[in-house]
């Protein structure tokens, strides 16, 4: 077994990653002990205890941790990502796809999504947009009385909660949920039930409001209409005009044009 060459190469791979740049100085000193130019020359090599290693790999809260990442295509609408702890409304024809697109990137980086009370959500479409299905949980529409406790159980425990209540929640419930989201860092995404409706059922203020103002489907590149002459074609991409209004944005909001779904399924900018 040739052991010398691979071992020295792999030891560099196995060295602790440079994740701890923000450690306090006394820890940096301690880290110095483990490095090559440290006292290891003198034969002393300190192996950190398991508890110590566990403490080190624990996540630290950085400024960027207060933001959930979003897909590249949505950078025009959310240049800094999705701020944790906010409430978001999504409306217009294509609201479901847009809501899924908002959450897709975060699920890939370890965030969980819970969908409360949208029995119609197309999960194949969710996977196509880029949502990691292994971090998605679906909760059947609870009875109106239990709706707020169920949503509250997820606030703080999962990063993204998509709600689509069939009833009109009480203003006090919604206010409490929004406050808990701010505290727990979860993002509550509200989508009105049905298809193509406006935000009308939410009895509270939403921090951000995305709306799809215009949507048009196109077939193949050559022929922008699908099958109008019985041609074998299919739906391919949809061009949507999205605008977002809300806290900290200019009064006219931000606007962008997206292909949702794009030619590969995931949204792209044309």
């Amino acid at each position: 077994m040739p052991s010398t060459q691979p071992t020295s190469y792999l030891r560099s791979l196995l060295a602790e990653p440079e994740l701890f740049d923000d450690l306090p100085p006394e820890e940096l000193l301690e880290r110095h002990l483990f490095s090559e130019e440290g006292p290891s020359k003198s034969g002393l090599r300190v192996v950190p205890s398991l508890a110590e290693t566990a403490r080190r790999v624990q996540s630290t809260t950085l400024a960027t941790d207060r933001v959930l990442p979003v897909l590249e295509a949505l950078k025009g609408l959310l240049p800094n990502g999705l701020q944790r702890g906010i409430t978001v409304g999504v409306s217009g024809s294509g609201a479901r796809s847009l809501a899924l697109a908002l959450m897709a990137r975060a699920t890939e980086t370890g965030s969980w999504v819970v969908v409360v009370g949208d029995d119609d959500l197309g999960l194949a479409a969710a996977a196509e947009v880029g949502v990691a299905l292994k971090r998605l949980v679906v909760v059947n529409a609870p009875d109106p009385k239990q709706w707020a406790p169920v949503v509250a159980a997820f606030v703080g425990a999962v990063d993204l909660i998509l709600v689509s209540p069939r009833h009109r929640p009480l203003a006090a419930e919604v206010r409490r949920l929004a406050a808990r989201c701010r505290e727990g860092g979860s993002v509550l995404v509200y989508m009105s039930p049905g298809v193509g409706h406006l935000i009308d059922g939410w009895p509270g203020r939403l921090d951000f409001h995305f709306s799809i103002n215009e949507a048009s489907w196109v077939g193949s590149d050559a022929d922008p209409t699908i099958g109008s002459d019985m041609k074998q074609d299919r739906l391919r991409v949809r061009q949507v005009y999205v605008s977002v209004n809300g806290r900290g944005l200019p009064p006219e909001g931000r606007r962008d044009i997206l292909l949702l779904p794009g030619p590969e399924g995931a949204p792209v900018r044309p």
Partner: peptide, 11 residues
């Protein structure tokens, strides 16, 4: 059915 998949599948 070809992709894309529908985002709302009615129960």
């Amino acid at each position: 059915l070809p992709q894309p998949f529908p985002a709302a599948v009615h129960v």
